[in-house]
């Protein structure tokens, strides 16, 4: 009798655990309900966490560098279930500026229908259409205020800067302000009145290996990316700070953009 009681306890315990699991994982999503999906962009450099100003890193060209500023646009987010059901986040809610200096900005939160999403697609940069839209349609992070420091817009040659990284390196030549600085301002949406290069990168990630996103009401599914900015330097073309301390609106920027499209590594998903 005693042992039956014991078994009953164990069975009850197991049932409780299983039902708790199933509650978490198998609650049927109601696609009519929308819930929050969060994309976390956690910037790292190679094997180490990115630390603005204080961290020093070495690229494949053997150059030691520190990063003072890092920010980039994430936009046009799309999700797809295993069965191929796709949801495109309404464009107006789909522009984010991720800044290393601002922790909150590293979580891009969108509303999507409840569901289990296996594929996530986003744009690194700003689509060409938005680059040519009326100024009243460019609100929030898209307000084209230009400027050399934190601005993500080229005033002299209309268009957004998609990715901006600035820092110092002993290998960089001394700039007019007396600092050994490198500056990578990467943009280029293909041109308006004349075709030019296009550095808009679309990134599609299969979440199945590190965890699909189970989006349900009442909680937040967080897809955690590690963004390895070392990949901007080390890739198909190894970018040397000494050889190219300033990469802005130039054909060479295409090499940088081809490198940085592979920065995104899906580490895990918190459901």
């Amino acid at each position: 009798m005693k042992s039956i009681y014991k078994y009953a306890v164990v069975i009850f315990y197991l049932l409780t655990v299983i039902s708790a699991c199933s509650k978490k994982n198998d609650a049927q999503p109601v696609s009519a309900n929308k819930a929050t999906l969060s994309l976390q962009f956690d910037n790292i450099v190679g094997d180490r966490n990115l630390q603005l100003q204080t961290g020093t890193y070495k690229n494949a060209s053997g150059e030691q560098f520190s990063i003072q500023l890092l920010q980039y646009f994430i936009s046009n987010i799309k999700v797809k279930t295993k069965d191929g059901q796709e949801f495109i986040v309404p464009q107006e809610e789909s522009y984010f500026l991720v800044k290393e200096s601002d922790g909150a900005s590293q979580f891009c939160k969108v509303k999507v229908p409840e569901g289990d999403y296996q594929t996530l697609t986003f744009t690194l940069g700003v689509d060409s259409l938005r680059n040519t839209m009326d100024i009243t349609k460019r609100t929030g992070v898209l307000d084209p205020t230009g400027g050399m420091d934190n601005g993500m817009y080229w005033g002299w040659n209309s268009g957004y800067i998609f990715f901006k990284m600035e820092g110092t390196s002993e290998q960089a030549p001394v700039d007019p302000t007396g600092v050994r600085k490198f500056r990578f301002h990467i943009g280029g949406f293909g041109g308006y009145s004349a075709p030019t290069f296009n550095n808009i990168k679309t990134v599609t990630v299969d979440l199945s290996a590190a965890g699909i996103a189970r989006v349900r009401g009442g909680r937040e599914s967080n897809v955690h990316f590690l963004v390895d900015v070392m990949k901007m330097f080390n890739g198909k073309t190894n970018i040397s700070i000494a050889a190219n301390p300033q990469v802005m609106f130039s054909n060479y920027s295409v090499n940088v953009a081809n490198n940085f499209s592979s920065m995104f590594y899906h580490d895990h998903t918190e459901n």
């Binding site: 040519t132 009326d134 100024i135 084209p144 205020t145 230009g146 400027g147 050399m148 601005g151 817009y153 005033g155 002299w156 040659n157 209309s158 308006y192 009145s193």
Partner: peptide, 14 residues
């Protein structure tokens, strides 16, 4: 380099 008059003044200001 600028294709929209509404975006033009940003250039001289900055």
């Amino acid at each position: 380099g600028i294709f929209d008059l509404d975006l033009q003044p940003i250039s001289p200001i900055t």
